[in-house]
């Protein structure tokens, strides 16, 4: 009747619980260590001028990463403006218009494949398509090209979450809307999309956070600039490329800025993830 810890089933139980707990700790350790390490190395330089000044010339001291922060925001905004309409529209088509047609199956499959394409491939693709051909006003590297490269990376996530989010909307709700004489367009825009707002918004924010931290696709497309952004058809500085460039420079000031930029970038992405969680919770009835 009484609990006997020496029984083999109870000992095995305890052992398994311990092993699982250890692995769970190991799993969250990287995030904690990255945050602490970046904070330790990069937190010291956090100051107001960091956000308002340009990086120093090689060999000089001080300066900030204001242009890179602004550049990351611009490039991510371009990517969002492209990927969100296309992705949500594609997701609506898959879920609402062609649930199981061969075309929808093909789109779903290629979307899953696209999600697995390495980000550098997306960069090379946009390099070949836009940068090398100079299609935009005869400009080569540009913020626009960077945004398109990031949009290619965001697209699968947005399509997938929209598709899955819309599938979660109960079928009865669609019937209800059709039953009062709503057309398909009205049903989707006024009833189905609002009902699926939470998963779609969450997916979009996660996709944006993912894209904001990408480096590889931007190296070939947005390149870098030591100056403030000069429109979206010129090369632009971004945080991730700034980190990539400055971390390997033989100058103390640049290395320190790379660490600080890492810290700011991690905090930005963390904030976006928290925003996604907050959206998911706030919209729940």
């Amino acid at each position: 009747m009484f609990f006997d810890p020496s029984l083999s089933r109870n000992r095995i139980n305890k052992l398994c619980t311990t092993v699982a707990g250890v692995f769970a700790t190991i799993a969250v350790l990287p995030l904690l260590l990255v945050l602490l390490y970046v904070l330790w190395n990069g937190g010291r330089l956090i100051s107001f001028q960091l956000f308002t000044q340009l990086p120093p010339a090689p060999g000089m001291e001080g300066g900030g990463i204001g242009n890179a922060i602004l550049g990351t925001l611009i490039v991510t905004a371009i990517a969002t403006l492209i990927a969100l309409p296309v992705g949500v529209g594609g997701g609506i088509y898959l879920s609402e218009y062609s649930r199981s047609g061969w075309f929808a199956q093909a789109v779903r499959f290629s979307n899953d494949v696209l999600a697995g394409v390495p980000s550098i491939i997306s960069g090379v693709f946009v390099y070949g398509l836009i940068v090398a051909t100079r299609v935009f006003f005869n400009q080569s590297y540009s913020a626009m090209a960077g945004g398109i490269a990031l949009a290619v990376l965001m697209l699968p996530t947005v399509i997938k979450t929209t598709d899955e989010g819309l599938k979660l909307v109960p079928q009865e709700l669609r019937w209800g809307a059709y039953g009062v004489g709503a057309s398909r367009f009205v049903t989707i825009t006024r009833v189905i999309l609002p009902a699926a707002f939470t998963p779609i918004a969450t997916g979009a924010v996660l996709a944006i956070a993912r894209a904001a931290g990408e480096t590889a696709p931007l190296i070939f497309t947005a390149l870098f600039s030591p100056f403030w952004p000069e429109g979206i058809f010129n090369p632009i500085a971004t945080m991730s490329v700034l980190i990539f460039n400055f971390a390997i420079m033989p100058y103390e000031a640049q290395n320190a800025l790379a660490w600080t930029a890492s810290f700011v970038l991690v905090v930005m992405i963390l904030a976006a993830n928290l925003l996604a969680r907050w959206i998911a919770r706030a919209a729940r009835p």
Binding site: L173, W175, G176, V180, G181, A182, R190, V191, P285
Partner: peptide, 27 residues
Amino acid sequence: VEVRRRIGMVFQKPNPFPKTIYENIAF
């Protein structure tokens, strides 16, 4: 769509829209 406007339907499971009571009717 026109047919369903003239022939309304009530379903097995109550399926109000995720809107206010007022908007459910007004929609």
